[in-house]
Write a protein that binds this DNA or RNA. Sequence first.
DNA 1: TAGATTGTTAATCGATTAACAATC
DNA 2: TAGATTGTTAATCGATTAACAATC
Lengths: 217, 217
Amino acid sequence: MEEREISKAVIKRLPRYYRYLGNLLEEKVERISSNELSEMMNVTASQIRQDLNNFGGFGQQGYGYNVKYLYNEIGRILGLDRVYNMIIVGAGNLGQALANYVKFEKRGFWIKGIFDVNPRLKGMTVRGIEIRMTDELPQFIRDNQIQIAALTLPKSGAEELAPILVENGVKAIWNFAHTDLQQLPKDVIVESVHLSESLMQLSYNLNHMELEKEREL
Amino acid sequence: MEEREISKAVIKRLPRYYRYLGNLLEEKVERISSNELSEMMNVTASQIRQDLNNFGGFGQQGYGYNVKYLYNEIGRILGLDRVYNMIIVGAGNLGQALANYVKFEKRGFWIKGIFDVNPRLKGMTVRGIEIRMTDELPQFIRDNQIQIAALTLPKSGAEELAPILVENGVKAIWNFAHTDLQQLPKDVIVESVHLSESLMQLSYNLNHMELEKEREL
DNA sequence: TAGATTGTTAATCGATTAACAATC
DNA sequence: TAGATTGTTAATCGATTAACAATC
């Protein structure tokens, strides 16, 4: 029953396969070879086959992959075949943006509550979901069996609240704050989205591209 | 004048170094060794020294690194020592969240305009920035020398508008739409933030952690 | 000077690509 | 059966870590 650990690089690519297969599905494409898919996605066919074979043989020699089947299998691997109870902590613009993003619910991520420290927001609703005060968090998490919390609040609040969330049962944190939340127990999943760091990568690449062009002259 | 190409992995780590150094700076720490920093950041000291030495020798034997100097140098490398003119295309929740995020302007990313296809938003303002209609984009980009466009609108709109942005002078796209914008000229920088893919990685890891725990029983 | 710590070379590790036998 | 394409092993490539001479 040995299961080799799957590398992070592979996990990161799975959602992208899932997206492309979803598109093919919409276009009513029934089957696809690793070679065709590799051209669409701009990766090597070898990498696709290696990646998929981490999880089992989903293809058929001489035929390729059945799009619908592979789409569902990857969805299952990613854990999209079940539902999750989720909260959003921080009801600012970004928190509200996430709350309004209906597609998450389609994928099984149910937003059960939105929380903030600002008493002026108390009782307001976003897409029918009430904004509550953060002191209600422990009770709410336990009562509603919340597994996932999105943190869309400043660093200090995130660092303060994260341990409380975890103590009360939160298993995974989708972290938008400018911190790595390193103090949490290591069985807690932290998936961070650092928007400003993404923008810095963009500016690095932009400057680098400009330098390259200057050098060509 | 040979410059070896810096790997993507290194570029991705730079903003994180920058963030930690910024924190140290706030705490008035003057110098730090690669070893101390490595413990804070949970990486190897060797990696830090290798990463930095891609860009030059910023340290001093027997002393370590001067925090302020290194912070500024990494900022310079990332292109944070200049200003950029930026627009946001898509005035939904996410677009407004970005527009309201004041810290971007502190780093030199100036938001010059917000655009949408929805005529009902016309003339409204977000943090003093007027929402304009997308047919004004070509003129506006040229008039305001826009280099960066954040795309916070659905896939179809993003794919339709991106080439128009580029034609009129946009050099880099910060892409939040569910597409890779592969059709663009290869000298255009595309930095994508795929939120739903991030959430899928989270759910993979959450399920995987649960499976691991079950196995331990 | 002695101690500390970098910058850099060498060794190791892991991930990607290539090749091809297996098989539909 | 012949052709196509996978699954998988082997080869290559690149990134990370270890080691240590250089030097502050």
